[in-house]
Simulated assay, not measured.
Amino acid sequence: MRELVALETAAFFSGFGHVVMPLLGTGPDGRPLLCSFGPDGSEVARWDFHTGKRLWCYDEGMSGCNDGVFVRRRDGGVSLAVATEDGIEWWDALTGEYRPELTWEEATIWDLAVGKQPDGRPVLLGACHDGGIYRWDGETGESLGAPLRGHRVMMAVSFVSLTGNAGVIVAGDDAGRIWRWDSLNGEPMGEPLVGDASQIRMIEALPANGNPLIVSRDQDSNLQRWNVITGMPVGQVINTGTDVHGLAVTELDGVAVLIAAGADETVRVWDAGTGQPIQLSGQGVVVHAVDAPDGGALLAVCTSRGEVVVTRYAFHPSRF
């Protein structure tokens, strides 16, 4: 079995005695960018994970935080968008400047993803409780046309990049269906895929490697990989063995990996192409990941006690 080894680890206390959601990204200088938010909406913050110093904090409170994403702007800056019970809130991720003029407050957004518009500009995608997939300009916050309509409640959304500026918007609903739209014209791509009889709670795009795949997580925390073009399932269902609270994907030395963490505070990893498990020693309730410049990966996990641990991983050289 392949094994991941920790090359460098930093840990600090978030200030809360419960789980916060870590969010990893890359700043304009190429260095890692770490933010966090509490599910109760009490705080959004940016951290220096080497020192544990809070670089900025917004603590005026929101109506709960369901998800968050970084949006890279063409001016070199990075925005932070957070999904709430009321809609979307925005910040400058680097400075912590709150952007109330970009606020969208019309309905509960459960999940967020970042894609690209036909001209290459970023687009923010939101899975809404009213059954729509909403689209906003990632730089101005302006709504982009009517929402893409599925069925029932939309719980999860992702964006799969294809050649050029083409892509596929993928979403999962509370009836276990997966929907697909062409990102260039908003037209549906075939019939909805039947993922499971339960809700599709998470969807993530896997690193392509010539094969446009997604992975979905249902209410029972089973993971299924799909070819987003053909709509066909790929490989066997992965039974995680726990209630998954965090699902992340990254690439390690050219290998796409799938990472999950949940109720039993065990971080699990699989080869996204084969579905085979990869050995890792790690604990946490939620997880987020980003590619590292050296071919490894950075993982941020949070424990049930509010500890945030950021680790740089690579494959064990003797067990690759």
Rank of each mutant, 00 (worst) to 15 (best):
L144R: 10
D196K: 15
I229P: 02
R312M: 13
M202H: 10
A146P: 10
S63P: 09
E187L: 07
I278A: 02
D174N: 10
A171W: 00
G77L: 15
G64K: 00
L125E: 01
P188M: 09
E105T: 11
V168R: 00
L102I: 09
S216V: 00
V5H: 13
E97S: 15
G150E: 07
M155R: 08
V82W: 07
G150S: 06
Y58F: 14
R99L: 13
A297Y: 06
E191G: 04
D174V: 01
P122W: 13
R201M: 14
V168D: 00
G68K: 00
R72S: 14
A45Q: 08
G61W: 12
W104T: 05
V257W: 00
R225I: 07
T266S: 06
T274S: 12
V237A: 03
M62I: 08
E101C: 12
A93C: 07
W110D: 11
R74W: 13
V20Q: 05
N239A: 09
W110G: 02
D196P: 15
R225K: 14
S161C: 03
I259P: 05
V287Q: 09
Q219F: 11
M154W: 00
E105S: 14
C128H: 03
V285Q: 09
I178V: 09
N227Q: 09
I88A: 05
M154E: 04
Q276M: 12
Y313A: 02
D196E: 13
D67S: 02
E204P: 03
M202F: 11
F49V: 07
D111K: 11
P293Y: 08
G235D: 04
P293N: 10
N239P: 15
N165A: 02
D218M: 02
E187G: 13
D196G: 14
Q279V: 07
R305V: 06
G30N: 08
A314Y: 09
P39H: 10
S14H: 06
L247G: 03
F70P: 02
V78A: 10
I259W: 03
S79K: 07
Q224W: 05
Q283N: 15
A81S: 08
K53Q: 11
E89V: 15
C128K: 05
D174L: 04
G15K: 09
V19Y: 07
A83V: 02
L258Q: 02
A208W: 13
R72A: 15
L184S: 13
V168E: 01
H151V: 12
E251K: 04
A171N: 01
E101G: 10
F320G: 05
R72M: 09
L162F: 05
Q236D: 14
S221R: 06
E3R: 15
W47E: 08
L223K: 05
D220A: 15
V269I: 04
F159I: 00
L23P: 01
Q219M: 11
D59T: 12
G195A: 15
D86F: 11
A127Y: 06
W270D: 00
G38E: 07
I200D: 03
G27Y: 10
W47H: 04
T266Y: 02
N66T: 03
E60Q: 12
G120H: 02
L55C: 06
G27P: 10
N227T: 11
L112N: 01
L298F: 12
N227S: 11
P22Q: 00
R312D: 12
P293R: 10
A156P: 01
S216T: 06
Q117P: 03
V267Y: 04
I259L: 06
V237W: 02
F13P: 13
